[in-house]
């Protein structure tokens, strides 16, 4: 149903599932992006088509390089100027917004949001491939499969997170279970007591482009401030400049001084 559903209340078992991504520790390794592709190319939205995969049919494709459908993409930005600039790795996938136009603009009802958990999906049997939903997504999260003629997108691994053929512990999105640094968290952002909600509260997790009014569910944890001053690690001032602290007699003039402080050291 294209018009947005009224979310199933928590009391009735309704959830608001989403991802929390920690920009402070993401090293930009692309593991989540590739593992996402690997899971999904044989999953609910199979296949995640690639074009010109081996640069053999560039002519008909207009790109010398391989390109294809990915649900999760890792960008790297530099924020600031010169040596103080921060390099920030930035994974980007569907944010499963609460009030997304990508759903309401769809003429067929193929693009829909689930009432029970808020996951935004595309019904591939219904989609006419008009692409309007992708125009309506501010986050560039939708990817059109021109070979299949339908729109595809992050499914929040809907075929994994509830999958009874998998062990309980494996029922998390592929991108989350594979992230080597543990920068990706999955859970119910509707429940203020959930681990993810707690994390967002502690770390001041934020929404992307709130000005769009789509109310994204996914949250990003900001990079922590740099710690390149002595006090940042609680180092007492007296240590701040070691050289000032060479005790009397402990000159730098080799052995004599050396002997001096060696004894004091050892007799400590």
């Amino acid at each position: 149903m294209t018009s947005l559903p009224t979310a199933l209340p928590a009391s009735a078992g309704g959830t608001k599932l989403g991802l929390v991504i920690d920009l402070d520790i993401c090293v930009g390794c692309h593991a989540c992006a590739v593992n996402c592709k690997e899971w999904n190319t044989s999953g609910h939205s199979a296949p995640l088509t690639d074009w010109n995969a081996y640069s053999a049919d560039a002519e008909e494709d207009g790109d010398e390089g391989a390109w294809g459908v990915w649900f999760n993409r890792i960008h790297t930005y530099e924020a600031g100027d010169g040596a103080d600039a921060r390099t920030v790795h930035f994974p980007r996938s569907c944010l499963h917004c609460e009030t997304p136009d990508c759903v309401t603009v769809c003429p067929t009802g193929a693009s829909y949001k689930r009432a029970e958990d808020g996951i935004v999906l595309v019904n591939a049997d219904l989609c006419i491939g008009c692409k309007l939903c992708s125009w309506a997504c501010p986050y560039g999260a939708r990817e059109y499969d021109k070979t299949e003629g339908v729109m595809k997108k992050c499914t929040l691994c809907v075929d994994k997170i509830y999958n009874e053929n998998l062990e309980e512990i494996d029922r998390v999105p592929a991108c989350v279970s594979t992230c080597p640094v543990g920068a990706r968290h999955f859970g119910d952002l509707g429940d203020p007591d959930s681990d993810v909600s707690q994390l967002v509260a502690e770390r001041a997790g934020y929404e992307l482009m709130p000005e769009m009014g789509y109310k994204p569910v996914n949250r990003y944890l900001p990079p922590r401030p740099r710690r390149d001053k002595a006090e940042d690690i609680g180092m007492p001032e007296r240590l701040a400049d070691l050289a000032q602290r060479v005790p009397a007699g402990e000159t730098t003039s080799g052995a004599s001084g050396l002997l001096g402080w060696l004894d004091t050291m050892l007799s400590r």
């Binding site: 992006a33 790109d63 010398e64 390089g65 391989a66 390109w67 459908v69 990915w70 993409r73 890792i74 960008h75 790297t76 930005y77 530099e78 924020a79 600031g80 100027d81 103080d84 600039a85 921060r86 390099t87 920030v88 980007r92 992708s134 560039g140 939708r142 990817e143 059109y144 990079p223």
Partner: peptide, 17 residues
């Protein structure tokens, strides 16, 4: 954090978007 510039895109080839 300051002006945000793209250092590297997600792929070196094209994307649908």
């Amino acid at each position: 954090l300051g002006t945000v510039r793209l250092l590297e895109g997600p792929t070196t080839s094209e994307t649908y978007v």
